[in-house]
Amino acid sequence: KRFFAYLRGMEVRRNEKITFRCSALEKAALSEQAARCGLSTSEYCRSLSLGGRPRERYTEEERELLRDIVRLKGTLQRLNNYFGGRQYREVFEENRTLITELQKILSR
């Protein structure tokens, strides 16, 4: 890990080449996965081979859905703050469960 942290701080000249064989189907799959992560195929393969885990980028539709979930979570949190008294315990507990589930979704 220390070596990779060192590399991040300096400009790296990539003038060495590694070649490997794969099927056309494997190459297409690598290219597609790289594109979903917003990386070139080389960057994607390099990251995987050095122990990285490239993450897929969200589509605009997915980003909008996440924004909706965040707003919903905030609304539920405000309701919980309002209904936190003993007479509304069932509402409070139900909202707490929903908020926990939303937090799990947002942390992915």
Rank of each mutant, 00 (worst) to 15 (best):
L30V: 08
E64D: 11
A35T: 06
R8H: 09
K17F: 08
Y58G: 04
L30S: 06
T41M: 12
D68C: 09
N81P: 00
D68I: 01
I69K: 08
R67W: 00
L72C: 14
K27H: 13
R108W: 00
T59M: 03
E61F: 02
F3N: 01
G74L: 06
V91C: 00
K1C: 07
N95C: 12
E60K: 04
K73G: 01
V91N: 00
L72T: 13
Y6W: 13
L79E: 10
E90S: 11
L48D: 05
G51N: 03
Q87I: 06
S107V: 01
N81L: 07
R2Y: 02
Q87H: 10
L30A: 10
T59G: 00
S42H: 09
E32V: 01
F92T: 00
Q103M: 11
R55D: 10
E11P: 07
K73P: 00
E60P: 01
L106P: 06
E64R: 10
R63I: 08
Y6V: 12
Q77F: 07
R96G: 04
I99E: 03
L48H: 02
A35F: 09
I69F: 11
G38I: 08
S47K: 13
A34C: 07
R67Q: 12
R108Q: 13
Y88C: 01
R108S: 13
L79A: 09
F4S: 08
R67K: 14
E61T: 08
S42G: 13
M10H: 13
S42P: 05
T19K: 02
R86D: 13
E101C: 07
T97A: 14
M10W: 07
R46Y: 03
A34E: 01
